[in-house]
Write a protein that binds this DNA or RNA. Structure first.
Length: 204
DNA sequence: TGCCAGGCCCTCTTTAGGGCCTT
């Protein structure tokens, strides 16, 4: 393993809030090491409830597909092994973090991994982008895709490429030798007008 | 019955409101 590894993760869910009873229905995750994807994890999961027509149409995941999928708790055990002790990244991490924590709690696991957010980083690095949706940013940076959106592994892979691209872009723009997870994480909290100042001061 | 996410971030701001993101 190189000195920079992270797992980029994405969930498809029955809705927006685990506090309102929503569950995860698919997870996709990729391990990045030395600026490339070196491992992948994907699974549908049966949430034990029917999903809405909106979610079927939004994701392409149907109730029929989920009827034969493994229970959420079984997938979560495997997911916990995959993410291990790696740093975690997601696009709008607060969303994926709350679902991950809620599902891990159901199997009496507790997340110890740090989370970073590609949405917060992108809002600072690409301030001229039309907007900061994952799909828009992928097109804005000409990141290759197979045209699949709103499926967990496809979105995790696109987020990983976006994340690597953001690190490369601030490296070249500010002449940085090394961009750490912690720097990217902290960047997400820096006031937008102070991004240049922050990177010049903290980037080694 | 009717309610219903929540964190970030900007601004006509902080005794608030609303758009952006995620499904």
């Amino acid at each position: 393993m190189g000195n920079f590894t992270a797992v980029i993760i994405d969930f498809e869910t029955t809705g927006l809030s685990p506090n309102m009873g929503d569950r995860t229905i698919e997870v996709g995750a990729v391990l990045i090491d030395n600026n490339r994807i070196v491992d992948k994890f994907q699974s549908l999961m049966n949430p034990g409830m029917r999903i809405s027509t909106f979610i079927e149409e939004y994701t392409g995941i149907t109730n029929k597909m989920l009827s034969t999928a493994a229970p959420v708790k079984d997938v979560m055990k495997n997911l916990a092994r995959f993410i291990h002790q790696h740093h975690l990244v997601a696009h709008n991490a607060s969303f994926d973090c709350k679902f991950l924590d809620a599902e891990l709690a159901r199997i009496s696991h507790k997340r110890k991994n740090d989370f970073a957010c590609s949405l917060l980083s992108a809002r600072r690095i690409y301030q001229d982008a039309p907007n900061h949706k994952l799909e828009t940013l992928v097109r804005y940076k000409n990141i290759k895709t197979d045209g699949t959106y709103h499926r967990a592994l496809a979105d995790a892979e696109m987020t990983a490429h976006l994340w690597l691209r953001m690190m490369a872009d601030i490296k070249s723009e500010y002449g940085l030798k090394n961009v750490t997870f912690q720097l990217m994480q902290q960047l997400g909290k820096v006031p937008k007008k102070k991004v240049g100042e922050f990177l010049k001061k903290n980037g080694a």
